[in-house]
Computed example of a mutant assay.
Amino acid sequence: MSDDGNKQSMTAKIVGAGVTLVAAWAVQKLIDAVWTRTKGHKPPSPDSTEPDIKFGEVATAAAISGAAISLSRVLATRGAAKLAGRAARR
């Protein structure tokens, strides 16, 4: 592979990582806002030791957060790869 190809590949990886982080952050903020609006409080954190938080609520928050963040990572990574492919063809 040429040096240009390596530079483009490294640039695509860096951009992809940045986009993925921003997407995960945005999804978490959205989940927090929706949870707060529907439940009246922020979602429980995994390290919370408050005894009045029900296990079902913790499990639901973890499942929703995990699924949404994983999906956003996949979409962000694919989008960044598609963009890098278009840039490489030009």
Rank of each mutant, 00 (worst) to 15 (best):
A33W: 07
P46Q: 10
K39I: 10
T11M: 04
A26I: 07
T38P: 00
G16M: 12
P43R: 07
Q28P: 00
R37D: 09
G40A: 08
I14Y: 08
A23E: 11
V22Y: 04
P44M: 06
V27Q: 05
W35I: 02
L30E: 01
V27P: 06
A12C: 10
V19T: 13
K13F: 12
K13G: 12
D47N: 09
T11K: 12
K29S: 11
T36L: 11
S48Y: 05
A26M: 08
K42Q: 08
V27D: 05
T38Q: 12
L30Y: 02
A17N: 11
K13C: 09
W25H: 04
G16R: 11
I31S: 02
W25F: 13
K29I: 04
A33E: 03
K29V: 12
P44G: 01
I31P: 07
L21D: 04
I14D: 11
H41R: 14
W35C: 01
G18T: 01
V19W: 05
A26K: 04
L21H: 04
I14T: 09
L30S: 13
P44S: 01
P43D: 05
A17L: 10
T36D: 10
Q28L: 12
G40P: 07
A12K: 13
A17G: 15
A24N: 00
A12W: 03
K13L: 15
D47Y: 04
P46E: 05
S45M: 05
P43L: 05
T36E: 11
S45V: 11
V22S: 13
K39H: 14
T11P: 00
D32K: 09
A26E: 00
V22H: 01
K13T: 11
Q28Y: 07
W35R: 08
D47L: 15
K42C: 03
P44V: 02
P44Q: 00
G16I: 10
A23F: 04
W25T: 12
D47I: 09
K42S: 12
K42I: 07
A26F: 05
G40I: 10
W35N: 03
L21V: 02
P43K: 05
K39V: 14
T38W: 12
H41A: 13
T38N: 03
P46G: 09
A33H: 07
P43V: 02
S48Q: 11
V15G: 01
V15Q: 09
V34I: 13
K39G: 00
K29N: 08
I31C: 03
P43N: 04
V19E: 03
V19C: 07
V22M: 10
V15D: 14
A26Q: 04
K29W: 03
W25D: 05
S45A: 13
P46A: 12
I31E: 03
T20H: 00
A24V: 14
R37Y: 09
A23T: 08
V15P: 01
P46M: 14
A24Y: 00
T20C: 11
D32G: 00
L21S: 08
L30W: 10
H41W: 12
A23I: 08
G16P: 03
A33F: 06
S45E: 12
V27L: 06
A26P: 00
A12R: 01
A17D: 10
T11I: 00
T36R: 14
T36S: 07
K29C: 02
G18C: 08
I14E: 13
I31W: 02
A33Q: 06
K13H: 14
A23W: 02
T36V: 04
K39R: 15
K39Q: 10
